[in-house]
Design a protein around this nucleic acid. Structure first.
Length: 260
DNA sequence: AATCGACCCAACCGCCTGAGT
DNA sequence: GACTCAGGCGGTTGGGTCGAT
């Protein structure tokens, strides 16, 4: 069964809002609150559907809406959050007070996507790191080690490598945006159900190693991942996800995140 | 000045989810 | 459990604007 559009009723107005309509909506909500959006237009005397009223209020009329261009700080946050969350505009908007999901979505599609693309193009055109083993297109599979569970936060990790140490990417390289990601093919990823069984996440299906100057950790599955403090059970969940996202983003894969 | 294409952004649409019955 | 409904979300659209020709 397909539900009829909420504005299908004859006589309901569509398109741009007039100043009078805006004023009517503002004064009604200031007096009575929005309560039931569906009932609101009738009560307020507007020839609009509730959905349209809600959208107009949330995206434009709400008193705390910040207008004007996005600052570079805001753009950076959007880019970072988009790396982390994907197209979850409302979640991104939650990190930017006064900005709406719609606005962020528009900015992303009109400015930031291009900006990012340019940055990636630039990065790919000037590789700083080369693999020593050019034949290897995926990270190398191996047996898991019996390394003890790690209590180190993922923020300690400054680099990662494959099992043969063919590629070593350091955090300063990541900062400088002059690296290329070693190629990773489809078989690298597997779908894993995590912890609460309500979320699915793409995880590396092969065993591989994460290391920094002091530690080297091997992961064979989501379970070994969870043994570490940046797993879902740990207090450093966000750090852990940042870490994984660095990898996911660089591999060009998308990821479905659990809520947090 | 007129035309055209690219870009921007407000608004709409359809789908999903959760609450209520 | 099945159904309905409202709210919320992300994708898409289309009208306005602006710069190039």
């Amino acid at each position: 069964m397909v539900r009829a559009p909420c504005c299908e009723k004859m006589g309901l107005k569509k398109g741009p809002w007039t100043q009078e309509e805006d004023q009517t909506l503002i004064s009604y909500i200031q007096k009575h609150g929005h309560g039931n959006w569906r009932a609101l237009p009738k009560l307020a005397g507007l020839l609009r559907c509730g959905k349209s009223c809600r959208l107009r209020w949330i995206n434009y009329l709400k008193p705390d809406i910040k207008r004007g261009n996005f600052s570079s700080e805001e753009e950076d946050i959007i880019i970072k959050m988009h790396e982390l969350l994907g197209n979850r505009w409302s979640a991104i908007a939650a990190k930017l007070p006064g900005r709406t999901d719609n606005e962020i979505k528009n900015v992303w599609h009109t400015h930031l996507k291009k900006k990012l693309l340019n940055s990636v193009t630039k990065r790919l055109s000037s590789p700083k790191i080369k693999r020593s083993d050019s034949n290897s297109s995926t990270l190398t599979q191996s047996e898991p080690t019996s390394s003890s569970p790690c209590t180190t936060s993922s923020s300690d990790f400054s680099s990662f490598s494959d099992m043969n140490n063919n590629t070593m990417i350091k955090s300063e390289d990541i900062e400088s945006e002059e690296i290329t990601m070693p190629p990773i093919d489809e078989s690298f990823w597997s779908e894993e159900t995590v912890e609460d069984e309500s979320s699915t996440i793409m995880m590396p299906s092969n065993s591989w190693t994460v290391s920094n100057d002091h530690h080297q950790y091997q992961f064979n599955s989501v379970e070994t991942f969870q043994q570490h403090s940046f797993g879902y059970n740990g207090s450093n969940f966000d750090d852990g996800m940042d870490f994984w996202y660095d990898i996911f983003i660089r591999s060009g894969e998308s990821i479905e995140l659990p809520d947090f």
